[in-house]
């Protein structure tokens, strides 16, 4: 096994089944439940399995992943601030600041359009097919967010298992309890450098878990803020699909731009 892979099993992400931070490839648990061989009835717990083609490549890659996560966490913070600004702005049209980061441009326009639609005069819409299609999209997005929320809740309730392998050979595994207890197992031939690599992998994984919690919080707080702007009862539920798409899109846009830059 010579590829560099970051695989996450036991955690299904809704919609496109993609990690909102773009770190993990989500795979079915059955692809490698090595912690429970023969124990098919065991419940699924999230297993973060990383394979590096070589230790040196691994170190560089982990460094990059860590930086990506940090930058996306900073973006989350900006997205939260942006949502708060939008909520405080008068009227629906909120001109983007000139210094708006490029990854915010398209998602902000989409968000603006969605809020415009929500603030249009109420029509019961019995025969308005366009409106109905938009509402169905909103319903699907709400459902996605709910499933994401449930997955994150499940994830937090379980241990995180982090495994590092080099060229297909596992070198260390760590089970992290919800309160932060660590249980790490090494193979006898592991080197100090390999141990450091695994430790680094554990740190990145835990950073991702915290980031995922923050992601949920940013969407929730953003929807609650926008509800104030909408000024209608249950406004947070109306705003939720637009806010979820906005936050997701900001991160996705950033990754697209990074991919272009790195080519």
């Amino acid at each position: 096994m010579t590829d560099n892979t970051f695989q996450l099993s036991g955690f299904a992400l809704p919609g496109v089944n993609a990690d909102p931070f773009g770190l993990w490839e989500v795979v079915p648990a059955s692809r490698g439940v090595s912690f429970a061989v023969g124990e098919v009835a065991q419940p699924e717990e999230p297993i973060h399995r990383v394979n590096f083609a070589a230790a040196d490549e691994g170190r560089a890659l982990l460094q990059l992943k860590r930086r990506d996560l940090q930058e996306q966490e900073a973006l989350l913070q900006q997205a939260e601030q942006r949502l708060a600004q939008i909520a405080q702005a008068g009227g629906v049209s909120f001109a983007a600041p000139l210094d708006q980061p490029p990854e915010f441009v398209q998602p902000t326009q989409t968000l603006e359009a969605a809020l415009q639609r929500l603030m249009e005069p109420v029509s019961y819409g019995l025969f308005d097919r366009r409106k109905q299609a938009e509402q169905e999209g909103d319903l699907e997005a709400t459902s996605q967010w709910r499933r994401f929320l449930e997955q994150v809740r499940e994830m937090m309730a379980h241990y995180a298992h982090v495994e590092t392998a080099i060229a297909g050979v596992p070198i260390g595994r760590t089970a992290v309890g919800w309160m932060g207890d660590f249980r790490t197992t090494w193979i006898p031939t592991v080197t100090s450098d390999d141990m450091a690599l695994h430790r680094h992998n554990v740190a990145v994984t835990l950073q991702w878990r915290r980031g995922t919690l923050r992601f949920v919080g940013v969407v929730g707080a953003g929807a609650a803020n926008i509800a104030v702007k909408l000024g209608m009862p249950g406004g947070q539920w109306l705003a939720l699909p637009a806010v979820w798409n906005f936050v997701k899109d900001v991160l996705a846009e950033w990754r697209k731009l990074q991919a272009i830059k790195r080519q």
Binding site: H161, R173, T184, W186, I187
Partner: peptide, 22 residues
């Protein structure tokens, strides 16, 4: 308390995790 334990094993693939006693 915060507990951190380090183990070693000759064959990592034979290490199992029990979901009941964790």
């Amino acid at each position: 308390s915060l507990e951190v334990v380090t183990y070693s094993t000759d064959d990592l693939s034979k290490v199992t995790y029990d979901y009941n006693d964790r």
